[in-house]
Every structure is written in structure tokens, then in C-alpha cells.
Design a protein around this nucleic acid. Structure first.
Lengths: 107, 107
DNA sequence: AATATACGTGACCAAATGGTCACATGTCAA
DNA sequence: TTGACATGTGACCATTTGGTCACGTATATT
């Protein structure tokens, strides 16, 4: 059977290395494969496979510049996950709760 | 090596059957294993394994009532995924974009 | 007490996944 | 144009994962 869009997104997020890549791009995006590779304990091929899956899931979008390929974080699929299981009413309660938790931990 | 909390969450979300279970609980929770099983094309054992993983990830919380075990959706880990990669500023832009998309599709 | 109901465990196996390597193409610089 | 750099492909293999089954425990019902 065909693979759905959301299947690609959740599968992409299931791996810790790929989440770390998103974390790195969240701090600053527009990075190349080589730059990202240098921060990970893995060969270039492993990192490339991971980036390919993130791109296929549309969690990362890319732009070519000469021989380099620049990677950017795309927040849209993440927000769609949120909206799937949190309605407007619940969102208000939960985000207030987590804000409070954050306040207490940094006090 | 130790399995982290977020690892459990993302792994739990990676399977389409488990996402379907969350969808069912989003519509109405407090369901038993037997009720959930009756809606899926799978044996009770498969569904039980999936629910166990969802519970270990804290995406589902349970309450016992006699010989039944009732399952409830917990939105907190979902919101935490959101907050990991979407800051307040981006949230505003992205949710506005998705609201517009929704408007256009239902027009 | 006897029977049915609801949930639970461990073993087992096919399929999917994560990571590496040999090899290859395209781009920049001297 | 020669060599270095950046990215890309397909094969390969160890590990993890999804699903089923034989068997077992606890609670309800008659």
C-alpha cells in the first residue's frame, strides 16, 4: 500500500539522530550536509540518509547553491501534528499548564 | 543505553495503528481494550501491545475499573513536541497560515 | 462452584530500519 | 586541466519492530 504523508512525517521523527538534526536547524538553518555531519558521530552517508528522509517528509526544505545544498527547517508538519490531537479548548489549558511548569523549573 | 522519554513518545507515534488509536480516543476516550480492538483489523494481542507502548510514552493514561482498563488521551507530550521546534513568533505565523488553508479548502 | 469475560506475558518470526562502504557525478580553484 | 571538495546511489548486514499464538490471572455472572 501507498505511504501517506503523515506516515513519512512520523517515521522521520522516530529517530533520535533526525530529531537532533532538526534541533540543530532550529538553532540556525541554512546548513550544508558537510557542516551537519561534522557535529555528529556518524559517517556522511548516515547523515545523508537521515536528511533525505526529513526532506521527503517535508520537515526540511532545501535550496541548492553551486555544489552545496542548504537545509532549512519547515515547521508546518509539526503544527499539523499538534492540531490533530489538540483542539482549541484543550490547547489553552495545556499550554497554560506547561508554561507554569516552565516557570516553576526556572525559579 | 537508556531510552529517553521523548524517544518513547516519537517511537510510539511512528506506527499508523497507534495513531489511529489516538484518533479514536480523541473522538471519545475512556474506552476499554476490547472496545478498541473491535474497531481494528488485528488480534487483541496486537492492540494490547500498541496500547502498552502508548501508555509507556504517556500519550495514553489509564484507570482500572473492576476487570476493565479505561484508556484516556493525554495531550501534554503532543504539545511538548510542538514547543520543541516552534517558537512563539513562528507559531503565530504558521497557525495563521494553516487556518487560512483550512478556510480555503472548506469554501 | 462453574462459566464466561477482560486483561496480561513470553516466545516466536517476517519485515522494516539504521548504518557503513565501494563507487560515482557535479562544481570550484589553481 | 588537474585535483580537491560537496553531494549522490545501490548493495549489504545487524538490530529493531509489528503481529500472532499458547498459556495464564483476575473479575464478574448465574
Amino acid at each position: 500500500m501507498g505511504v501517506t504523508d503523515d506516515d513519512r512525517v512520523f517515521k522521520a521523527l522516530a529517530d533520535p539522530t533526525r530529531r537532533l538534526l532538526l534541533d540543530r536547524l532550529f538553532v540556525r538553518d541554512g546548513r550544508t550536509l558537510t557542516e551537519l555531519e561534522s557535529e555528529l558521530e556518524m559517517t556522511r552517508f548516515g547523515v545523508m540518509k537521515h536528511l533525505k528522509l526529513l526532506e521527503a517528509a517535508n520537515l526540511v526544505v532545501t535550496r541548492r547553491s553551486g555544489r552545496e545544498k542548504l537545509h532549512y527547517l519547515n515547521p508546518v508538519p509539526i503544527r499539523q501534528i499538534h492540531d490533530r490531537w489538540i483542539d482549541k479548548y484543550t490547547e489553552h489549558r495545556v499550554s497554560a499548564l506547561l508554561d507554569l511548569k516552565d516557570e516553576l523549573e526556572n525559579a
